[in-house]
């Protein structure tokens, strides 16, 4: 084959390859975006819960972004913790009710004052702290919240939540 013709074929091959590559990357990006959560799913990410009706040592389960939210009004005997949400003189544990191991819902054992996860045996105390040596690697997560009187808006970041973030309590 003549040199001149070989150069021309190489060029055509590379041009075709480059166009196909650009198209391929574009298609991959479109595929990635198609798998993204829809805007309607994202927009439904805010929930308001009322804390004034909660009773001490009685777990209330709310729902936020499809996930269960544990709300536990603490009794005075329960240990205080910087993770507590304080409203007036009341202290609340508010966490996402999913085990930090693999996402099962731990059950609250009222008499033992602990959350027990049936999937892999994880335990959390009334401040949501995981018992060491068991599968869960970290405490129950605190969802983004904003205090409005006796109400809590989940999904919004209020000053108390931002302080927890800064202190490394929330993630």
């Amino acid at each position: 084959m003549k040199e001149e013709r070989k150069g021309r074929r190489d060029f055509m091959g590379m041009a075709l390859g480059a166009c196909a590559a650009v198209g391929g990357v574009g298609a991959l990006y479109a595929a990635k975006r198609t798998w993204d959560p829809l805007p309607s799913v994202k927009a439904a990410g805010f929930t308001t819960i009322d804390l004034s009706t909660a009773k001490p040592n009685e777990l209330v389960i709310e729902k936020w972004r499809g996930k269960p939210i544990f709300v536990l009004k603490k009794t005075p005997q329960m240990k205080e913790n910087p993770r507590d949400i304080v409203i007036g003189s009341d202290r609340f544990l508010v966490t996402i009710g999913l085990c930090t191991h693999l996402g099962c819902i731990p059950a609250y054992q009222k008499d033992n004052l602990l959350f027990f996860c049936a999937c892999h045996g994880g335990k959390f105390d009334t401040s949501g702290i995981n018992e060491p040596g068991l599968p869960p690697p970290s405490p129950l997560e605190i969802p983004p919240f904003k205090i409005q009187g006796t109400k809590l808006v989940l999904g919004e970041e209020g000053p108390e939540y931002k302080k927890m973030l800064a202190d490394g309590i929330a993630v």
Binding site: K32, W35, D36, P37, L38, V41, G45, R65, G66, K67, L102, G103, P137, V171
Partner: peptide, 24 residues
Amino acid sequence: NLFSGGSLEAYGLVEWIRGDYVPG
């Protein structure tokens, strides 16, 4: 949840796989 990679906490990836915050 396995795809969060443990302490990597890649929840963005998990939500991407699900297309939602939870399976829906």
